[in-house]
């Protein structure tokens, strides 16, 4: 009995603290389910492409230069989000704001380049099966990038309002992991749509 009591008498953190916060667990669960969603999207791609009677992809191999650069840009933005939290944890609020800002600019750049990539395609969503797959998969990802950017913008606002300090910033940890997820998923999408046809 007394042992149990002693156990209960410890001082405990209060409220949303880092990875003890409910929100952290919630976002992990969300990532699991969103990850499955992309898994099924890519499954559909492989399933349909493996049964294609025509040449695949019908328009020939995709060009790799611009998408590769774009991939690098997205990964870089993940690094800056990480750096933003790192600065905050070391009491460098200004640095944190700057890092977040850079991350957002890079994310926006990714969106811009991706839009350009879309408009350069000779096919559309409805022109053939490949087009349907290509635009649906990249469209789903684009949607996630846009949501991620809204989250990053909110985080930026909250950091600059000085809501957070080195002890309390679970929102950054939680929002940040979502952004990392969006970026990692892109690696799978990129591999599937751009690299896989070369194999």
């Amino acid at each position: 009995m007394s042992e149990a009591r002693q156990l209960l008498d410890q001082p405990l953190p209060v409220g949303s603290e880092g990875k003890l916060a409910g929100g952290w667990w919630g976002i992990v669960a969300l990532i699991v389910t969103e990850g499955s969603l992309f898994g099924y999207l890519l499954f559909s791609y492989f399933y349909l492409s493996s049964q294609a009677e025509r040449h695949w992809p019908p328009e020939g191999l995709p060009s790799l230069l611009l998408p590769s650069i774009n991939t690098a840009i997205l990964i870089a933005s993940s690094v800056f989000v990480w750096a933003s939290e790192y600065c905050l944890a070391r009491k460098r609020k200004r640095g944190s704001v700057v890092m977040m800002l850079v991350a957002i600019v890079l994310g926006a750049l990714f969106v811009g380049i991706q839009l350009k990539e879309w408009s350069s395609k000779t096919y559309g969503m409805t022109s053939d099966l490949y087009g349907s797959l290509y635009f649906t998969i990249t469209g789903f990802h684009m949607l996630h990038v846009v949501i991620g950017l809204v989250i990053l913008l909110l985080l930026l606002a909250w950091i600059s309002f000085r809501y957070f300090d080195e002890k309390r910033h679970a929102a950054i940890t939680i929002g940040g992991i979502y952004w990392h997820f969006v970026d990692v998923v892109w690696l799978f999408v990129f591999t599937t749509l751009y690299l896989f046809p070369y194999m």
Binding site: S16, R162, K167
Partner: peptide
């Protein structure tokens, strides 16, 4: 909810 720094 202690989601923010109490001293902000």
């Amino acid at each position: 909810l202690a989601q923010r720094s109490p001293t902000d």
